[in-house]
Design a protein around this nucleic acid. Sequence first.
DNA 1: GCAAATTATATTGTGTATAATTAAATTGAG
DNA 2: CTCAATTTAATTATACACAATATAATTTGC
Lengths: 145, 145
Amino acid sequence: MEYDVLKLSNQLCFPLYACSREIVKKYKPFLDEIGLTYTQYIAMMVMWEKKTVNVKTLGECLYLDSGTLTPLLKKLEAAGLVTRERSEKDERNLVIGITEKGESLKEPAKTVPEKMASCMNLSMEEVSTLYSLLYKILKADEVCE
Amino acid sequence: MEYDVLKLSNQLCFPLYACSREIVKKYKPFLDEIGLTYTQYIAMMVMWEKKTVNVKTLGECLYLDSGTLTPLLKKLEAAGLVTRERSEKDERNLVIGITEKGESLKEPAKTVPEKMASCMNLSMEEVSTLYSLLYKILKADEVCE
DNA sequence: GCAAATTATATTGTGTATAATTAAATTGAG
DNA sequence: CTCAATTTAATTATACACAATATAATTTGC
Protein backbone atom coordinates (compact mmCIF):
# COMPACT_ATOMS: atom_id res chain seq x y z
CA MET A 1 0.00 0.00 0.00
CA GLU A 2 2.80 2.37 0.88
CA TYR A 3 4.11 1.83 -2.65
CA ASP A 4 0.90 2.95 -4.37
CA VAL A 5 2.66 6.18 -5.33
CA LEU A 6 4.76 4.03 -7.67
CA LYS A 7 1.81 2.52 -9.53
CA LEU A 8 1.73 3.53 -13.19
CA SER A 9 -2.00 4.20 -12.91
CA ASN A 10 -1.35 6.80 -10.21
CA GLN A 11 1.00 8.90 -12.34
CA LEU A 12 -0.06 12.02 -14.20
CA CYS A 13 3.10 12.10 -16.30
CA PHE A 14 2.45 8.75 -17.89
CA PRO A 15 -0.86 9.45 -19.70
CA LEU A 16 0.69 12.74 -20.80
CA TYR A 17 3.71 10.94 -22.25
CA ALA A 18 1.65 8.15 -23.84
CA CYS A 19 -1.03 10.50 -25.18
CA SER A 20 1.54 12.73 -26.80
CA ARG A 21 3.05 9.83 -28.70
CA GLU A 22 -0.32 8.34 -29.64
CA ILE A 23 -1.47 11.63 -31.14
CA VAL A 24 1.78 12.19 -33.06
CA LYS A 25 1.26 8.69 -34.42
CA LYS A 26 -2.25 9.62 -35.58
CA TYR A 27 -0.81 12.54 -37.54
CA LYS A 28 1.56 10.33 -39.50
CA PRO A 29 -0.69 9.25 -42.39
CA PHE A 30 -1.83 12.86 -42.96
CA LEU A 31 1.69 14.27 -42.72
CA ASP A 32 3.08 11.55 -44.99
CA GLU A 33 0.90 13.02 -47.74
CA ILE A 34 2.75 16.34 -47.54
CA GLY A 35 6.14 14.77 -46.83
CA LEU A 36 6.69 16.10 -43.30
CA THR A 37 7.34 14.47 -39.94
CA TYR A 38 5.46 15.82 -36.93
CA THR A 39 8.42 17.86 -35.68
CA GLN A 40 9.03 19.26 -39.16
CA TYR A 41 5.33 20.14 -39.35
CA ILE A 42 5.35 22.22 -36.17
CA ALA A 43 8.60 23.88 -37.29
CA MET A 44 6.91 24.80 -40.61
CA MET A 45 3.92 26.16 -38.65
CA VAL A 46 6.25 28.68 -37.03
CA MET A 47 7.76 29.50 -40.45
CA TRP A 48 4.33 30.01 -42.04
CA GLU A 49 3.53 32.44 -39.26
CA LYS A 50 6.83 34.31 -38.91
CA LYS A 51 8.47 33.93 -42.39
CA THR A 52 11.88 34.58 -40.81
CA VAL A 53 13.26 33.43 -37.46
CA ASN A 54 16.60 32.51 -35.94
CA VAL A 55 17.32 29.07 -34.49
CA LYS A 56 17.26 30.22 -30.89
CA THR A 57 13.81 31.79 -31.21
CA LEU A 58 12.47 28.80 -33.11
CA GLY A 59 13.78 26.59 -30.33
CA GLU A 60 12.02 28.69 -27.72
CA CYS A 61 8.75 28.50 -29.65
CA LEU A 62 8.94 24.72 -29.95
CA TYR A 63 10.72 23.94 -26.65
CA LEU A 64 13.47 22.29 -28.69
CA ASP A 65 17.22 22.92 -28.73
CA SER A 66 19.74 23.17 -31.54
CA GLY A 67 20.70 19.50 -31.22
CA THR A 68 17.23 18.66 -32.52
CA LEU A 69 16.75 21.66 -34.79
CA THR A 70 20.05 21.75 -36.67
CA PRO A 71 19.63 18.41 -38.47
CA LEU A 72 15.88 19.00 -38.88
CA LEU A 73 16.41 22.41 -40.52
CA LYS A 74 19.10 21.00 -42.80
CA LYS A 75 16.52 18.46 -44.02
CA LEU A 76 13.91 21.15 -44.59
CA GLU A 77 16.56 23.14 -46.48
CA ALA A 78 17.46 20.08 -48.58
CA ALA A 79 13.74 19.69 -49.35
CA GLY A 80 13.73 23.31 -50.56
CA LEU A 81 11.23 24.50 -47.95
CA VAL A 82 13.48 26.89 -45.99
CA THR A 83 16.76 28.79 -46.34
CA ARG A 84 19.56 28.94 -43.75
CA GLU A 85 21.75 32.04 -43.66
CA ARG A 86 23.98 33.75 -41.11
CA SER A 87 22.72 37.11 -39.91
CA GLU A 88 24.81 40.03 -41.21
CA LYS A 89 24.36 41.95 -37.97
CA ASP A 90 25.48 39.13 -35.71
CA GLU A 91 27.09 36.19 -37.41
CA ARG A 92 26.38 33.91 -34.46
CA ASN A 93 22.73 34.03 -35.46
CA LEU A 94 21.49 31.63 -38.10
CA VAL A 95 18.42 33.07 -39.80
CA ILE A 96 15.86 30.63 -41.18
CA GLY A 97 13.66 31.92 -43.99
CA ILE A 98 10.73 30.36 -45.80
CA THR A 99 10.96 29.69 -49.54
CA GLU A 100 8.17 29.94 -52.10
CA LYS A 101 7.97 26.15 -52.10
CA GLY A 102 7.68 26.26 -48.32
CA GLU A 103 4.86 28.81 -48.58
CA SER A 104 3.00 26.73 -51.14
CA LEU A 105 3.03 23.73 -48.81
CA LYS A 106 0.65 25.70 -46.62
CA GLU A 107 -2.22 24.95 -48.98
CA PRO A 108 -2.24 21.13 -48.69
CA ALA A 109 -1.21 21.41 -45.00
CA LYS A 110 -4.37 23.38 -44.26
CA THR A 111 -6.46 20.22 -44.39
CA VAL A 112 -4.42 18.42 -41.71
CA PRO A 113 -5.95 20.06 -38.59
CA GLU A 114 -9.52 19.27 -39.64
CA LYS A 115 -8.61 15.68 -40.48
CA MET A 116 -7.06 15.35 -37.01
CA ALA A 117 -9.99 16.98 -35.22
CA SER A 118 -12.21 14.17 -36.39
CA CYS A 119 -9.86 11.68 -34.70
CA MET A 120 -10.39 13.22 -31.26
CA ASN A 121 -13.22 11.94 -29.09
CA LEU A 122 -13.44 15.06 -26.94
CA SER A 123 -16.08 17.80 -26.88
CA MET A 124 -15.18 21.42 -27.66
CA GLU A 125 -15.35 22.19 -23.96
CA GLU A 126 -13.09 19.30 -23.01
CA VAL A 127 -10.56 20.34 -25.67
CA SER A 128 -10.61 23.84 -24.25
CA THR A 129 -10.11 22.64 -20.67
CA LEU A 130 -7.27 20.34 -21.65
CA TYR A 131 -5.62 23.12 -23.64
CA SER A 132 -5.75 25.51 -20.66
CA LEU A 133 -4.33 22.98 -18.22
CA LEU A 134 -1.45 22.05 -20.52
CA TYR A 135 -0.51 25.68 -21.06
CA LYS A 136 -0.72 26.27 -17.33
CA ILE A 137 2.00 23.63 -16.89
CA LEU A 138 4.04 25.06 -19.75
CA LYS A 139 3.62 28.71 -18.86
CA ALA A 140 6.45 28.83 -16.33
CA ASP A 141 8.91 28.61 -19.24
CA GLU A 142 6.71 30.30 -21.84
CA VAL A 143 8.74 32.49 -24.20
CA CYS A 144 7.22 32.43 -27.68
CA GLU A 145 4.61 35.15 -28.11
CA MET B 1 -7.32 34.39 -41.56
CA GLU B 2 -8.23 31.22 -43.42
CA TYR B 3 -4.86 29.84 -42.32
CA ASP B 4 -5.51 30.31 -38.59
CA VAL B 5 -6.03 26.57 -38.30
CA LEU B 6 -2.29 26.29 -38.99
CA LYS B 7 -1.20 28.57 -36.13
CA LEU B 8 0.81 26.73 -33.51
CA SER B 9 -1.20 28.45 -30.78
CA ASN B 10 -4.41 26.91 -32.16
CA GLN B 11 -3.20 23.32 -31.92
CA LEU B 12 -4.09 20.99 -29.05
CA CYS B 13 -1.42 18.49 -29.99
CA PHE B 14 1.44 20.93 -29.55
CA PRO B 15 1.11 21.75 -25.83
CA LEU B 16 0.59 18.03 -25.25
CA TYR B 17 3.81 17.23 -27.09
CA ALA B 18 5.79 20.05 -25.46
CA CYS B 19 4.37 19.39 -21.99
CA SER B 20 5.25 15.74 -22.16
CA ARG B 21 8.88 16.52 -22.95
CA GLU B 22 9.11 19.29 -20.35
CA ILE B 23 7.87 17.00 -17.61
CA VAL B 24 10.17 14.13 -18.60
CA LYS B 25 12.98 16.70 -18.44
CA LYS B 26 11.96 17.64 -14.90
CA TYR B 27 12.21 14.00 -13.85
CA LYS B 28 15.79 13.71 -15.00
CA PRO B 29 17.67 14.98 -11.91
CA PHE B 30 15.57 12.74 -9.64
CA LEU B 31 15.91 9.70 -11.88
CA ASP B 32 19.64 10.27 -12.32
CA GLU B 33 19.96 9.62 -8.58
CA ILE B 34 18.59 6.09 -9.01
CA GLY B 35 20.29 5.53 -12.37
CA LEU B 36 17.19 5.23 -14.57
CA THR B 37 15.98 7.11 -17.64
CA TYR B 38 12.30 8.06 -17.76
CA THR B 39 11.35 5.18 -20.05
CA GLN B 40 13.28 2.73 -17.87
CA TYR B 41 11.49 4.17 -14.82
CA ILE B 42 7.99 3.53 -16.17
CA ALA B 43 9.07 0.05 -17.29
CA MET B 44 10.29 -0.63 -13.74
CA MET B 45 6.96 0.65 -12.40
CA VAL B 46 5.22 -2.13 -14.29
CA MET B 47 7.78 -4.63 -13.00
CA TRP B 48 7.34 -3.51 -9.37
CA GLU B 49 3.63 -4.05 -9.78
CA LYS B 50 3.53 -7.27 -11.79
CA LYS B 51 6.87 -8.97 -10.90
CA THR B 52 6.64 -11.00 -14.13
CA VAL B 53 5.43 -9.94 -17.54
CA ASN B 54 6.12 -10.74 -21.16
CA VAL B 55 7.35 -8.15 -23.64
CA LYS B 56 4.06 -7.91 -25.48
CA THR B 57 2.06 -7.14 -22.33
CA LEU B 58 4.66 -4.66 -21.14
CA GLY B 59 4.45 -2.95 -24.52
CA GLU B 60 0.66 -2.73 -24.24
CA CYS B 61 0.91 -1.23 -20.77
CA LEU B 62 3.40 1.41 -21.89
CA TYR B 63 2.17 1.92 -25.47
CA LEU B 64 5.66 0.96 -26.70
CA ASP B 65 6.74 -1.66 -29.21
CA SER B 66 9.58 -4.19 -29.20
CA GLY B 67 11.85 -1.87 -31.17
CA THR B 68 11.96 0.36 -28.11
CA LEU B 69 11.64 -2.28 -25.41
CA THR B 70 14.18 -4.87 -26.58
CA PRO B 71 17.28 -2.65 -26.18
CA LEU B 72 15.82 -1.02 -23.06
CA LEU B 73 15.20 -4.36 -21.35
CA LYS B 74 18.69 -5.56 -22.28
CA LYS B 75 20.08 -2.51 -20.48
CA LEU B 76 17.93 -3.19 -17.40
CA GLU B 77 19.14 -6.80 -17.51
CA ALA B 78 22.77 -5.66 -17.80
CA ALA B 79 22.16 -3.42 -14.76
CA GLY B 80 20.92 -6.49 -12.87
CA LEU B 81 17.40 -5.15 -12.36
CA VAL B 82 15.46 -7.68 -14.45
CA THR B 83 15.85 -11.14 -15.97
CA ARG B 84 14.96 -12.13 -19.55
CA GLU B 85 13.93 -15.75 -20.20
CA ARG B 86 11.94 -17.56 -22.87
CA SER B 87 8.67 -19.05 -21.66
CA GLU B 88 8.70 -22.85 -21.48
CA LYS B 89 5.08 -23.08 -22.53
CA ASP B 90 5.45 -20.88 -25.59
CA GLU B 91 8.95 -20.09 -26.69
CA ARG B 92 7.80 -17.07 -28.67
CA ASN B 93 7.23 -15.32 -25.36
CA LEU B 94 10.10 -13.61 -23.57
CA VAL B 95 9.30 -13.40 -19.89
CA ILE B 96 10.73 -10.46 -17.97
CA GLY B 97 11.16 -10.98 -14.25
CA ILE B 98 12.28 -8.63 -11.51
CA THR B 99 15.47 -9.38 -9.53
CA GLU B 100 16.11 -8.71 -5.86
CA LYS B 101 18.22 -5.72 -6.89
CA GLY B 102 15.30 -4.50 -9.00
CA GLU B 103 12.97 -4.87 -6.02
CA SER B 104 15.31 -2.97 -3.74
CA LEU B 105 15.37 -0.03 -6.14
CA LYS B 106 11.73 0.51 -5.20
CA GLU B 107 12.77 2.05 -1.89
CA PRO B 108 14.75 5.03 -3.24
CA ALA B 109 12.32 5.32 -6.19
CA LYS B 110 9.45 5.87 -3.76
CA THR B 111 10.57 9.44 -3.16
CA VAL B 112 10.45 10.42 -6.86
CA PRO B 113 6.67 10.98 -7.19
CA GLU B 114 6.52 13.33 -4.20
CA LYS B 115 9.53 15.29 -5.46
CA MET B 116 7.82 15.66 -8.84
CA ALA B 117 4.47 16.64 -7.32
CA SER B 118 6.09 19.73 -5.84
CA CYS B 119 7.21 20.74 -9.35
CA MET B 120 3.63 20.92 -10.62
CA ASN B 121 1.73 24.17 -10.29
CA LEU B 122 -1.71 22.54 -10.54
CA SER B 123 -4.34 22.02 -7.83
CA MET B 124 -5.51 18.53 -6.91
CA GLU B 125 -8.70 19.15 -8.84
CA GLU B 126 -6.84 20.31 -11.95
CA VAL B 127 -4.58 17.27 -11.81
CA SER B 128 -7.64 15.07 -11.58
CA THR B 129 -9.36 16.78 -14.54
CA LEU B 130 -6.23 16.59 -16.68
CA TYR B 131 -5.78 12.92 -15.78
CA SER B 132 -9.33 12.08 -16.84
CA LEU B 133 -9.11 13.93 -20.14
CA LEU B 134 -5.81 12.29 -21.08
CA TYR B 135 -7.16 8.82 -20.32
CA LYS B 136 -10.28 9.61 -22.31
CA ILE B 137 -8.04 10.19 -25.34
CA LEU B 138 -6.01 7.07 -24.61
CA LYS B 139 -8.92 4.78 -23.74
CA ALA B 140 -9.74 3.82 -27.33
CA ASP B 141 -6.59 1.68 -27.35
CA GLU B 142 -6.52 0.88 -23.63
CA VAL B 143 -5.27 -2.64 -22.95
CA CYS B 144 -3.34 -2.71 -19.66
CA GLU B 145 -5.61 -3.33 -16.68
C1' DG C 1 -0.64 -34.36 -39.35
C1' DC C 2 0.94 -30.69 -42.24
C1' DA C 3 1.06 -26.38 -44.85
C1' DA C 4 -0.58 -21.68 -44.18
C1' DA C 5 -1.77 -18.08 -41.26
C1' DT C 6 -0.89 -15.98 -37.00
C1' DT C 7 1.83 -14.46 -33.11
C1' DA C 8 5.97 -12.76 -30.54
C1' DT C 9 10.29 -10.89 -30.50
C1' DA C 10 14.43 -9.10 -32.75
C1' DT C 11 16.75 -6.25 -36.19
C1' DT C 12 17.45 -2.31 -39.14
C1' DG C 13 17.02 2.34 -40.70
C1' DT C 14 15.43 6.93 -39.98
C1' DG C 15 14.25 10.67 -37.05
C1' DT C 16 13.99 12.87 -33.05
C1' DA C 17 15.53 14.55 -28.04
C1' DT C 18 18.86 16.12 -24.73
C1' DA C 19 23.28 16.90 -22.26
C1' DA C 20 27.84 18.23 -22.84
C1' DT C 21 31.36 20.20 -25.46
C1' DT C 22 33.30 23.22 -28.97
C1' DA C 23 33.89 27.29 -31.64
C1' DA C 24 33.00 31.74 -33.09
C1' DA C 25 31.26 36.37 -32.35
C1' DT C 26 29.88 40.13 -29.39
C1' DT C 27 29.70 42.74 -25.15
C1' DG C 28 31.20 45.08 -21.31
C1' DA C 29 34.09 46.13 -17.24
C1' DG C 30 38.22 48.35 -16.24
C1' DC D 1 40.63 50.12 -26.27
C1' DT D 2 41.03 45.19 -24.83
C1' DC D 3 40.50 40.87 -23.02
C1' DA D 4 37.51 37.97 -20.27
C1' DA D 5 32.74 36.64 -19.86
C1' DT D 6 28.68 35.78 -22.34
C1' DT D 7 25.88 34.34 -26.12
C1' DT D 8 24.63 31.51 -30.07
C1' DA D 9 24.96 27.52 -33.11
C1' DA D 10 26.90 23.39 -34.33
C1' DT D 11 28.71 18.95 -33.07
C1' DT D 12 28.97 14.67 -30.55
C1' DA D 13 27.35 10.91 -27.83
C1' DT D 14 23.63 8.44 -25.80
C1' DA D 15 18.90 6.98 -25.64
C1' DC D 16 14.64 6.56 -27.17
C1' DA D 17 10.50 5.90 -30.81
C1' DC D 18 8.52 3.72 -34.66
C1' DA D 19 7.87 1.62 -39.30
C1' DA D 20 9.25 -2.12 -41.89
C1' DT D 21 11.26 -6.39 -42.25
C1' DA D 22 13.01 -10.83 -40.61
C1' DT D 23 12.88 -14.96 -37.92
C1' DA D 24 11.09 -18.44 -35.31
C1' DA D 25 7.39 -20.76 -32.86
C1' DT D 26 2.53 -22.00 -32.43
C1' DT D 27 -2.25 -22.65 -34.23
C1' DT D 28 -5.56 -23.88 -37.30
C1' DG D 29 -8.05 -25.35 -41.41
C1' DC D 30 -8.47 -29.10 -44.09
